[in-house]
């Protein structure tokens, strides 16, 4: 149980709460409100009720964005989870030589800016200078202009996100595996458990907390995907068929000057992110408690 508040308490807490209030709490509440207004960013916002949300329902760009968000999400989430789990099991395995170096390689995509991840994959997937097409050719496949072709460009976003984010999922699973009790594992071997049973009944239950963090954080990460689409827009054209909600917000603010509309989409994105986080946040609080 902590002590009663005194003057020092306020000195300790005040700077944090001023910053949080000015730059996060006030703006987010303001965003919710502005979502009900028509506003170009310069004149006074006009209250229009649910107008922006109605516009959204009939806006093809909005539905393209939602569709892209969903498509990316559905492919990305299982793959990034499995990749992380696989790498973590390998890196946890004492039989593997040079685990520190391998760990570094897994983290490579995660420590660099996503714009550079984008540059890297633009190069790898390039129709002329790209090694991906070269490998496909060697195996007798048909080379393609992956990024320039509208039907495949979205895979650039998925593969870039995977390379960048599997470092995170691996790290979280690795931390979860640290608690793995070697004796329990040995006992299960003596009891005659095969590798699959060992994984299913000993390792998996242990990884449940890590799995919740991985699935939640990866969902949030991919819902917010923006940088790789911006990378594609660098230069001469804006690939609107690749738009996602986070990109649409940017587009409505800076290209269309529809700040009220942008705020409405931002509200929606925030609500979606919260819905995906509830499970994890509840668990964080249960585990850590809120009282010191």
């Amino acid at each position: 149980m902590g002590r009663r508040v005194n003057k020092d308490f306020f000195i300790l807490m005040t700077p944090a709460f001023i910053l949080l209030f000015i730059f996060i709490i006030y703006p987010i509440l303001n965003t919710f409100y502005l979502g009900f207004t028509k506003w170009d960013g310069f004149t006074n916002p006009q209250f229009v009720g649910l107008e922006n949300y109605k516009t959204m329902m009939n806006d093809p760009l909005f539905w393209t964005s939602v569709k892209n968000n969903l498509f990316i999400f559905i492919i990305f989430l299982p793959l990034v989870t499995l990749l992380g789990l696989g790498f973590a099991l390998l890196l946890h395995n004492k039989a593997v030589v040079g685990r520190n170096v391998l760990r570094g390689l897994v983290m490579l995509g995660m420590v660099m800016p996503l714009t550079v991840v984008g540059i890297v994959w633009m190069l790898l997937l390039d129709p002329y200078s790209g090694i991906v097409n070269k490998i496909i050719e060697i195996f007798g496949g048909q080379p393609r202009a992956w990024i320039q072709d509208p039907s495949t460009a979205i895979y650039f976003i998925i593969i870039g996100s995977l390379w960048a984010w599997q470092g995170f999922t691996t790290t979280v699973f690795l931390a979860g595996l640290e608690g793995l009790d070697v004796e329990v594992l040995e006992a299960s071997v003596i009891d005659g458990a095969n590798p699959w049973q060992r994984f299913r009944y000993v390792i998996l239950p242990l990884l449940k907390p890590a799995l919740i963090v991985v699935v939640t954080m990866s969902s949030i990460y991919i819902l917010k995907v923006f940088d790789l689409i911006y990378v594609l827009s660098g230069g001469e054209s804006i690939p609107m068929y690749l738009s996602v909600l986070a990109y649409m917000i940017y587009y409505e603010i800076f290209y269309m000057l529809k700040w009220g509309y942008a705020a409405a989409i931002a509200t929606l994105l925030t609500v979606a992110v919260f819905l995906f986080s509830i499970g994890m946040l509840k668990r964080m609080i249960e585990e850590r408690g809120v009282e010191a």
Binding site: P27, I28, N30, T267, T270, S277, L281
Partner: peptide, 21 residues
């Protein structure tokens, strides 16, 4: 609880009012 919850807020959620501010 508020603090824990705002951990997940996307940058896009604050950008419109921030630009005005």
């Amino acid at each position: 609880l508020t603090l824990v919850a705002i951990q997940v807020i996307p940058q896009q959620a604050v950008i419109v009012p921030l630009l005005k501010l």
